[in-house]
Simulated assay, not measured.
Amino acid sequence: MRIPFARLRTDGAARRLFNAVLLALCAVAALPASAQAGPIRILALGDSLTAGFGLDPADGFVPQLQAALRGQGFDVTVLNGGVSGDTSAGGLDRLDWALADKPDLVLVELGANDMLRGVDPASTRANLDKILARLGQEKLPTLLAGMRAAPNLGPDYAKAFDPIFPDLAKAHGVALYPFFLDGVAMVAALNQADGMHPNPAGVKLIVERITPAVVDLIRLSGLDRAG
């Protein structure tokens, strides 16, 4: 129903209604696009641990994390940005492509293949630094998942590799999950036959342990759409 402007000047109730509607429309327009409609889009940028190597689709990290978050009432879609065999350099190279999916939040899980291949930790640090810098430019809330060097690589390698993740998380002001494979690494019952990739039970434990960190970041970032 159209309300003539001349009438608004004399009809106090109509004027108040008009002003209330106008303010509400302005408030909605001022919200970020992610807050107006649709699920929270979480990009899991990683390697085979994210991609779900050797697992049925429903058993991988991405679908299990999505199910866990939805089970807590969050309207989320977790995007699988995992590529088996990928290094931090590979993750950096495809970052633009991954961000084309317009995520609201990013989980970075890279570095395991760098470590397994004995890549110079300085190179891994530089690549992850660039990834986090770009995500910062995009103002994307980020959770960095840490990795630890295998014992057979020796103490010198571990001394250079392990601090990469806490150092960069602090430098870029992003959330840190200290060790992606916490509770799963080197536990035969939780890994596939290769001893490196978690089986469905191993992924379940990873998801149980990392989900609170993801939930915290969702809430701290103002993306909370729990029902």
Rank of each mutant, 00 (worst) to 15 (best):
L95P: 06
G173K: 11
P151D: 14
V214F: 05
G91V: 14
M115P: 00
V187E: 14
A24M: 12
T124D: 02
G82H: 05
P141K: 04
M186F: 11
Q137N: 09
T124N: 02
E208N: 09
D182K: 07
C26N: 03
G91E: 04
D59C: 01
V215Y: 12
K139Y: 06
T142M: 02
A185K: 08
F180G: 00
V62T: 11
G222M: 10
I3Y: 14
A58E: 13
P166Y: 10
L132A: 12
A29L: 15
D101I: 00
A89Q: 10
L143A: 04
P121D: 04
W97T: 12
S48D: 03
G202A: 06
V207G: 02
V184F: 10
A33C: 00
A145K: 01
V76D: 13
N127K: 04
V108W: 03
D129E: 11
L128T: 04
P178I: 07
L43Y: 04
I40D: 10
G90E: 08
G71E: 04
G183R: 06
V28T: 04
G85E: 07
A100W: 06
G81Y: 03
G81S: 06
A160E: 03
R41A: 12
T124Y: 02
L223S: 04
Q66S: 12
K102Y: 04
H197N: 05
A44I: 13
G91C: 09
P63H: 07
V214M: 05
K159T: 15
A171D: 08
F165N: 02
L17I: 15
R134D: 12
D120K: 08
A98L: 09
G91M: 08
N191P: 01
D224G: 05
L132H: 12
D47W: 13
G118T: 09
A6S: 14
V187L: 02
I131Q: 07
H172E: 14
L176P: 06
Q36F: 11
I3C: 02
P212F: 07
R15W: 14
D129V: 02
L168R: 09
T87W: 05
P212V: 01
A193N: 09
D56K: 08
W97H: 11
P32W: 05
L176K: 05
D101F: 10
N199L: 06
I210D: 00
L190G: 03
T77Q: 15
G91F: 12
L107S: 01
Q66K: 11
V21S: 03
V108T: 07
P155F: 02
A149I: 13
N152R: 10
S48K: 07
V28A: 06
R15V: 00
Q36W: 14
L107G: 01
R15L: 13
G73A: 06
F18R: 10
I206G: 00
A24F: 14
M186C: 00
A24C: 08
L79V: 06
G222I: 15
V28E: 04
K159Q: 11
R134W: 03
L45F: 10
A188K: 13
P151K: 10
T10D: 12
L140D: 02
D47T: 09
V203P: 00
V215K: 15
D93Y: 12
A193D: 13
P155A: 15
S88D: 05
D11S: 05
G71W: 04
F74K: 09
L79W: 03
P103H: 05
Q66R: 14
L223E: 02
R209L: 07
